[in-house]
Design a protein around this nucleic acid. Sequence first.
DNA 1: AATGAATGAGGATTCATTCAT
DNA 2: CATGAATGAATCCTCATTCAT
Lengths: 208, 208, 208, 208
Amino acid sequence: MRTPSMKGKATRRRIIDAAADLFHKQGVQATSPQQIMETSQTGKSQLYHHFRSKGGLVHEVLQHHIQSIREGSAAIDYEITSWSDLQRWFRAHAGLQEKYRMTRGCPFGTIGNEVTENDELIRRDLELLFEVVRNKLAGFFLRERTRGRLGPGANEAALADFCISSIQGAMLLGKIRRDRGTVDLAIDQALNYLAGFRRSVPRRRGSA
Amino acid sequence: MRTPSMKGKATRRRIIDAAADLFHKQGVQATSPQQIMETSQTGKSQLYHHFRSKGGLVHEVLQHHIQSIREGSAAIDYEITSWSDLQRWFRAHAGLQEKYRMTRGCPFGTIGNEVTENDELIRRDLELLFEVVRNKLAGFFLRERTRGRLGPGANEAALADFCISSIQGAMLLGKIRRDRGTVDLAIDQALNYLAGFRRSVPRRRGSA
Amino acid sequence: MRTPSMKGKATRRRIIDAAADLFHKQGVQATSPQQIMETSQTGKSQLYHHFRSKGGLVHEVLQHHIQSIREGSAAIDYEITSWSDLQRWFRAHAGLQEKYRMTRGCPFGTIGNEVTENDELIRRDLELLFEVVRNKLAGFFLRERTRGRLGPGANEAALADFCISSIQGAMLLGKIRRDRGTVDLAIDQALNYLAGFRRSVPRRRGSA
Amino acid sequence: MRTPSMKGKATRRRIIDAAADLFHKQGVQATSPQQIMETSQTGKSQLYHHFRSKGGLVHEVLQHHIQSIREGSAAIDYEITSWSDLQRWFRAHAGLQEKYRMTRGCPFGTIGNEVTENDELIRRDLELLFEVVRNKLAGFFLRERTRGRLGPGANEAALADFCISSIQGAMLLGKIRRDRGTVDLAIDQALNYLAGFRRSVPRRRGSA
DNA sequence: AATGAATGAGGATTCATTCAT
DNA sequence: CATGAATGAATCCTCATTCAT
């Protein structure tokens, strides 16, 4: 059974989902409230009932992304516990792009790229989002260091940022070239670089 | 003396310059013909006299960028003949961003980010632009290999693409964080990676 | 009391009425949304709220005309039940023109004349409209035949079409000459021709 | 060899021809100077060199039409010397329409339809044009009367106008219905009516 | 006679948003 | 929570015309 509040939530959620997809597809500027309302099968002013403005909606979309990343419900899995997880994380991005026939970039990068001086709030949301991602990645590198599996000469946050900016650059170039090969090659090199910091630790006797 | 064609060209050029700057600042979508006309001190329909449409103007802006890169008249110098040139090339991007107080990304990436399925022509222009850049960079790596100063295990085009996607990712993240440090750190790591391919060649006796 | 839908309908109706009059006066092409909005005292985008486009508005105007003809609420009475009704029908057209000092033609013909290959939908609307008119007229001729008052040698639909094309030609020429005499003379001749098909039936004994 | 003045004449003529065709196809309003210049392969301001304005061009187009009718160089032959010529005259209109797949009406009527209160000069041109046509037709009827082949009860000018308004109405309806049958049927009835005025004169003995 | 740049108003339409109910 | 009318500025672009050469 659907209670009214459930229905409300459904509407709100439908709008966010539709907006997130459209923002990913064509950017924020190119997406009109009208289009969002049509895509989400909502009355136009529902959008203004649930969100203060289009900007407010962008904020909520980003909050939703952050939430998804934290919860692990996002399209890409940010729970990295092994080097192969890290590889998967990289490749998942290429996979996501390919799902859209290489016509889209990163959902976050796409929004970030459009940010101007007047979009300070959105910029902050994105800053937070990328910090969450960095923390996820840095967490992995930190755990690796703890276990002695990470060489010296690079700190965890920097490595995490390297991952992020590598994948952002790769996806943007991949979208422009409409070519997965470009993305994969960039990922290869990023992984190459990261592999340089990996240390294999001899298994202790008696351990699994 | 000003011939009529000179006058026309000046206008055309003023429009392209204004547009290029606005596109860099706020993207293509967010830039209206009206704004371009105000910025370039032109009548509104001059824009449509000189360019078929807004899309046509984007095309011309990109062609102009390509021309600038080829000629060496661009904001960034793409003539790389030494490893230190390469470093400068990387840092120049950060410098460009800082010039705009880290509120802008890469002029090309910003346009590329906005490309959708309907902007096939623009995409092609960008593809070409990035190929020109890649060739410039790949040329350097090739010359280095010829001189025995490049180690095995990476081809020139791939290294060039690595440079491009690295700097794209770095600039995007730098813009989102409004932080040059992020860009510099990303550049450091890219240079680190590239340095791994560098081979020092013992000076021949008798040479400087 | 005014319900919201009532308000909406009133606006919609005001727009249609204003548009219909302007289309009659100066044609569709020469009528701008702006002019319609000023005439109907509406916000410009109300037009696009109620109608998809200018073309959509033309469609609705024609539908409204069709409705009026069917309902008998049009400027001209299409309910013909006698030969004198038919005469009145013809003369009413001249009267309508004179009302506008012979500066306008037929409201339908004016729109029809502007139709091009790209206005297929509008053309269909007009086709329907003229079919409705033809049916009204043909109905009269059919009833006359049933009563033995119509001679052989012409079918009802053809006579109806003759009426329509005669009046269309007459009004167009009348507008070009700005002269009612032209119209009346053309009507005289059309009525002359039609009179040739009329048969007087001897009154039955005992009837009035 | 082409003298400069010939070239000038050719340009002027090309513009008129292109304009005439476009006006016929889509009306005056819908035809922009730009389109005329493209169709006639002329520089845009040649149009303003040869004609004062767009209105001036319409005037010249109509003058050209009048000239063609007078000279007998028009698409339709207005030299009527026999009843079968008259039939041909009527059918030629249907033929002209069919040539354009019933998508166009009468070239003159189409322009006339668009005339508003502000186009007094154009209206006068059309008035003249139709007077020329009327005279051509009335001339035939007059000659017929002279020869005793025209019955009483209708004057020549009225019959001529009947021909004109009939064909105008027929062509308009034919265009709206995109159907030649409609036109032919209307022509049949007009001819029927006119035939009622025809008198056969017994050949004199000894004459051809 | 011809070219192409320039002009400024206006074209149709959509924008983001708010209001009334 | 939902609907749809209303708003007014802005969108991209074309209009008819003129100017300078």
